[in-house]
Design a protein around this nucleic acid. Structure first.
Lengths: 222, 222
DNA sequence: CGATGAATGTACTGGTTAGTTACTTGTACC
DNA sequence: GGTACAAGTAACTAACCAGTACATTCATCG
């Protein structure tokens, strides 16, 4: 009827746009998988929530599993460059460590879907992540900056010696992920919303204190 | 044919035993739900792995959801009396806190299915736990003992004042649950098995240090 | 403008799966 | 010793859902 093939102003506003369609499917699928888990998500439901059809999902991603893997990989890649955002080499080790912990805290808080996807992937024993081509690139960004801070702190006699970068990374992740991943059971049982904005600063400071007090504890004693 | 209604030695070994059947269904279902999630678990598969049939599952539990709720409730009740096992009132606050943290650590380590069920229940926004009759009894055991230790520690000027029992509980839970719940993605990315028995003592001590150094940090300064 | 291939829509299918029906067997109690 | 109810079996069904066949439309380029 009154189809305008191109708008009079701005970009052509194409009716067909593969990238746009792909991206829209991925967005909706991310929300759907994160909300219902792999088995619980419905391809029909994802299709219905896009402006396209189920046929397109299979056209672009081949299968439900292919779609899930694409969602998972995009989510991991979105979080990949986190640590590199931060230039901590000019800060003293204690401040650098706190900055890194707080950056991780903020980043996790603003990516709840990612955390839920990680939980879901763990339910499935990480079988999709383990065979993903993006896997080899995930370890270094998370550990390199942390390792450098830790090393500087140890050399200056500030940090304890009996933990490595992965241990510290685990503590930071555990704290940040727990708030989101276990939010619902925690709230049901204890009637406290861990993601309440009014408590965010408290928890952010708490994480920094936790990591720093631990790392700097009793250094120098026999 | 050669059916012996009662064995010549020992217990009668009844062929019909409602409690036994119920318990067996619950055991298998716990493993199955923990392994595959709610939507991923198959009632037929659970039935096939018991010595009874699918009809019995519906006879005893009414629906897949009813079975899942029964599994979840039993898992929570199994962990319920944890803190009461421990008589920490005769220990000084620091030792008591460490004992509690380590007990939690050991308990979580030996109940991986419970932790996976908690993850799964969080995927489902705790909707089943929230309506469960066992919910009201879950908060107190986890927090009461912890609260008493914290209170004693604060009164004696040993512990900091800016955290409450729920905060400390969160830290301990986050650490313990992360090791199990995120084991697979962590191992895939960093090639480190957080549940490796050779690392257990390291992590147990690490948790105790983490909590104590945090709680006792800088107490007394302005 | 006409052909070609990428992108998209509609309608369907076949296997899977939660839940049921109809029937059988064992147990306890009078 | 027979009867009533609890415990159990096997085969069935209706709905659901991942995946597909086939037709169609749009962009691009000669």
């Amino acid at each position: 009827m009154s189809a305008e093939p191109s708008g009079p102003v701005g970009t052509p506003e194409r009716q067909r746009d593969a990238e746009r369609t792909r991206a829209e499917i991925l967005d909706i699928a991310t929300a759907e998988f994160a909300d219902r888990g792999y088995a619980g998500a419905r391809v029909d439901e994802i299709a219905a929530r896009t402006r396209t059809t189920k046929r397109m999902i299979y056209y672009y991603f081949g299968s439900k599993e292919g779609l899930y893997v694409a969602v998972l990989e995009r989510a991991y890649q979105g979080i990949r460059a986190l640590e590199q955002q931060l230039d901590v080499d000019h800060l003293d080790p204690a401040r650098a460590m706190r900055a890194l912990a707080e950056l991780t805290f903020d980043h996790h808080e603003s990516h709840p879907a990612f955390i839920r996807l990680v939980s879901i992937e763990n339910i499935h024993h990480a079988e999709h992540l383990r065979t993903s081509p993006i896997l080899p690139g995930l370890a270094a960004p998370a550990v390199d900056v942390l390792g450098r801070i830790l090393e500087r702190g140890r050399r200056s006699g500030l940090f304890r010696e009996d933990v490595d970068a992965l241990d510290v990374h685990m503590v930071i992740s555990a704290f940040c992920i727990f708030r989101t991943a276990n939010r619902h059971t925690f709230q049901a049982i204890f009637d406290r919303d861990l993601l309440d904005p009014g408590r965010r600063d408290h928890y952010r400071r708490m994480l920094g204190d936790l990591v720093l007090e631990y790392l700097t504890a009793h250094v120098g004693r026999a």
